[in-house]
């Protein structure tokens, strides 16, 4: 049991070795730390923006998505959407928004854990944080698609606006509106978290692989001698 655990979390660094080459071991830790702080902080920054422009809205309508809530002209956009039979935006991704903050805290802790696992298994802990940006976009796309394709056929403008897939990124259009969607600061923080984690793993491997291999050789040798 202790052996398996040891294999999973990898070798500890001898004190002498740590003192001798402090930065070799600190570097991955620093990268992971910055990465997860960015991820945690991204809760407070918008992940996605959409601007909707139409003649009668000279100042535009704005929608801003955070991981856990929507802000901007939600009421007005919902009001307009009801004409084409689109469900209120508040009904989209309700589960995701409810758990997002906990999920990010969990990812934060997992990446923190990765710093303490000195074996290749550390990557497993970081997988959620690494894939999170992609998962966010896929989820956003799926919800927009679902909402766009499931318009109420009894809506007042159902004859004029047929079910459609809204544009998740870049320029799109619906009715008299031109839409512009782009990723926000929070999203780029999550991407930076993933990127820094990858770089962190490079240094992680450089620091711990020699130790890991040496230990393995030592234990193989012990096994052989036994």
């Amino acid at each position: 049991m202790a052996g398996i655990l040891h294999t999973l979390i990898g070798p500890r660094v001898p004190l002498e070795e740590l003192r001798a080459r402090r930065w070799r071991y600190l570097t991955p830790t620093v990268f992971f730390m910055v990465a997860r702080v960015l991820l945690l902080a991204s809760i407070y920054f918008p992940y996605w923006h959409m601007e909707l422009d139409a003649p009668q809205y000279p100042d535009g309508l704005f929608l801003t998505a955070y991981v856990n809530h929507l802000t901007g002209d939600v009421r007005e956009i919902d009001g307009l959407n009801h004409y084409i039979g689109m469900r209120p935006l508040g009904e989209a991704a309700a589960f995701e928004r409810a758990v997002a903050v906990w999920a990010i805290i969990a990812m934060f802790l997992l990446v923190e854990g990765a710093a303490f696992v000195h074996s290749r298994w550390a990557v497993l802990l970081a997988i959620p944080a690494l894939t999170f940006p992609i998962a966010f976009l896929v989820d956003l796309y799926l919800w927009m698609r679902t909402f766009g394709l499931s318009l109420d056929p009894n809506a007042p403008l159902s004859a004029a606006v047929k079910p459609f897939v809204p544009t998740v990124l870049g320029e799109g259009g619906i009715g008299q509106f031109k839409t512009y969607a782009e990723l926000g600061t929070g999203y780029w923080m999550a991407v930076a978290c993933a990127a820094l984690t990858v770089v962190g793993f490079f240094f992680h491997r450089r620091a711990y692989k020699p130790l890991f291999d040496r230990n393995r050789r030592a234990s193989t040798a012990r096994g052989a001698s036994a």
Binding site: Y44, F45, E51, D53, D59, G60, T64, Y180, T185
Partner: peptide
């Protein structure tokens, strides 16, 4: 500090 930063973040930039 974030709520302050975010208030600026949400600052509405008009395209046109």
């Amino acid at each position: 500090a974030a709520p302050e930063a975010l208030a600026q973040q949400e600052g509405r930039r008009r395209r046109g």
